[in-house]
C-alpha cells in the first residue's frame, strides 16, 4: 500500500510537471484541447447545427461561447488515472488495456461535461458557475475512481486486489 501510494503520488507530480512544460503545452495539451472542442461541436451539431468550434472555443449561434481551459480538458483527470494504473501492481498488458479503456471513459464523460456546461451557461450563468467550478470537478474525479476500481476488479485473482501495507 505504501509503495503504491508513493508511486502514485510521485508519478502524478512528475506527469503534472511535464504537462506544464511549454513543450507539452504546445505539442500535447493545446492539440488535445482543440480536438476535444471539435469533437464536442461535432456531437452537438447533430441537434444544434449552428454550433462551431474554433480552437478551444465552442460557440453558439446566439453568441454564447465556452473556452475549454486547463482543468476542463480532462488532462489532469487523465494524469491521475494514468498514475493510479501505472503505480498499481499488475502486468504491463493489463495496464495498457486499463489505460486505453480508462482514458476513453474519462474523456467520454469530459465531453459530456463540456456539452452540458455549454448549454447550462446559456440557460443560467450562476448554475453554470456552480457546476463548472465545483460539481463537475468532483464528478470527473469520481469517474476516475470508479474506472480505476473497475480496472482493479478485472485483475487476476492470483494478484492482490489492493496492495496491503508491506
Amino acid at each position: 500500500m505504501v509503495r503504491f501510494f508513493l508511486g502514485f503520488l510521485v508519478l502524478q507530480a512528475v506527469l503534472f510537471g511535464l504537462e506544464l512544460t511549454p513543450w507539452a503545452q504546445t505539442w500535447f495539451v493545446v492539440p488535445w484541447t482543440d480536438t476535444l472542442a471539435a469533437i464536442s461541436a461535432g456531437l452537438v451539431r447533430w441537434f444544434d447545427p449552428q454550433v462551431l468550434a474554433q480552437g478551444n472555443v465552442l460557440q453558439s449561434a446566439n453568441g454564447f461561447a465556452v473556452s475549454i481551459e486547463a482543468g476542463c480538458n480532462g488532462v489532469e483527470a487523465t494524469i491521475v488515472l494514468v498514475a493510479a494504473i501505472l503505480a498499481f501492481p499488475a502486468s504491463w498488458q493489463r495496464k495498457l488495456v486499463g489505460l486505453a479503456a480508462g482514458i476513453v471513459a474519462v474523456q467520454a464523460l469530459n465531453i459530456v461535461r463540456v456539452i452540458s456546461l455549454f448549454y447550462l451557461g446559456q440557460w443560467n450563468f450562476d448554475a453554470f458557475e456552480f457546476a463548472h467550478r465545483y460539481v463537475w470537478q468532483a464528478l470527473i474525479m469520481l469517474d476516475v475512481l470508479i474506472v480505476w476500481l473497475l480496472w482493479v476488479r478485472t485483475l487476476p485473482r492470483t494478484a492482490p486486489a489492493l496492495p496491503a501495507v508491506a
Binding site: 503504491f4 476500481l149 485483475l155 494478484a159 492482490p160 486486489a161 496492495p163 496491503a164 508491506a166
Partner: peptide, 10 residues
C-alpha cells in the same frame, strides 16, 4: 474486488 481483506501483501 471479491477478496479477503488483507489476504495478499505486496
Amino acid at each position: 474486488a471479491g477478496r479477503e481483506a488483507g489476504a495478499a501483501t505486496v
